[in-house]
Write a protein that binds this DNA or RNA. Structure first.
Lengths: 145, 145
DNA sequence: TTAATTGCAAATGGTTTGCAATATT
DNA sequence: AATATTGCAAACCATTTGCAATTAA
């Protein structure tokens, strides 16, 4: 996804921000770990492998920035930290998460099927929906016994 | 819902726990504020009106206990604190939340319509679903302009 | 009586912030 | 050169914990 680095550069320039080594490396780490839902601490550790001088605060600030730019999404799996995933743009956040209550594993489901529900809500509640977030809790194959 | 206090007493006794004044008052406050999604701090303030000696830690511990007993659900609206709602048991958590990105208002939607999706997931992913959590983000009537 | 519970204060841990030094434009 | 960004350490703030005193059973 080399075009994502280009797109980042453009978006930053547009807003008067700068493309720093730190920001490029953080994006690299996120790209290299698609589907992994990394936490800020985990990203920090992986970035340190490539750029040991980086500070944790920079990681937090960069993740906030990337979220504003819609490059990533913040997730909450109730495990004590926030987690992030790449916004792949292929249909706009159209997948859900299965969270195992026993082992904590998170499985992605590439299904949406919420259109009917969204339509009904938009009509009857006068609410303009721009995003959704659906999590299922239960037990994965290994933990079902 | 006087029967909820009775049910609480039974559930506590069953597990060797005690029904204290604090626990009863916290349940009262939650019952009096159904649909409000109170935070621990907000519950603490309301409980203090009836029982000024209570400590914030007791509120946290009680909310944890009530969650274990399935009396309440913990919610996360990304606003910096956890929030709780009563588990009304009338169909088991079958409603969703609309969260306004402008004013932060949370609207409940009494619709489920996720059965088809759950069925498909359970079949094809070998995942036993026990709960779900669906949030829609967007703009409410007043904030749509 | 005795085991669970409480209130308090201190600790924890993820996240944010102030600031002087540094890097990008 | 001007301004954004960084690393560091300290601050923040929601939540948790240790403990001696208290309370429900």
């Amino acid at each position: 996804m080399e075009n994502l680095v280009e797109s980042l550069k453009e978006q930053l320039k547009e807003k008067g921000y700068k493309l720093t080594t730190q920001r490029r490396i953080i994006l690299d780490v996120i790209l290299e770990n698609q589907g992994k839902h990394l936490s800020p601490e985990e990203i920090y550790e992986k970035v340190r492998g490539k750029f040991p001088e980086i500070g944790l605060a920079t990681v937090y600030r960069t993740l906030q920035l990337f979220e504003e730019l819609n490059i990533i999404y913040k997730l909450n799996f109730n495990d004590g930290c926030s987690r992030y995933e790449l916004n792949t743009n292929n249909g706009d956040h159209q997948h859900h998460h299965l969270i195992c209550l026993n082992c904590g594993k998170v499985i992605e489901v590439q299904l949406d099927l919420l259109e009917a529900l969204e339509e009904e809500i938009e009509k009857s509640r006068e609410f303009k929906i721009v995003d959704h977030n659906l999590k299922f809790f239960g037990y994965c194959k290994d933990c079902k016994k």
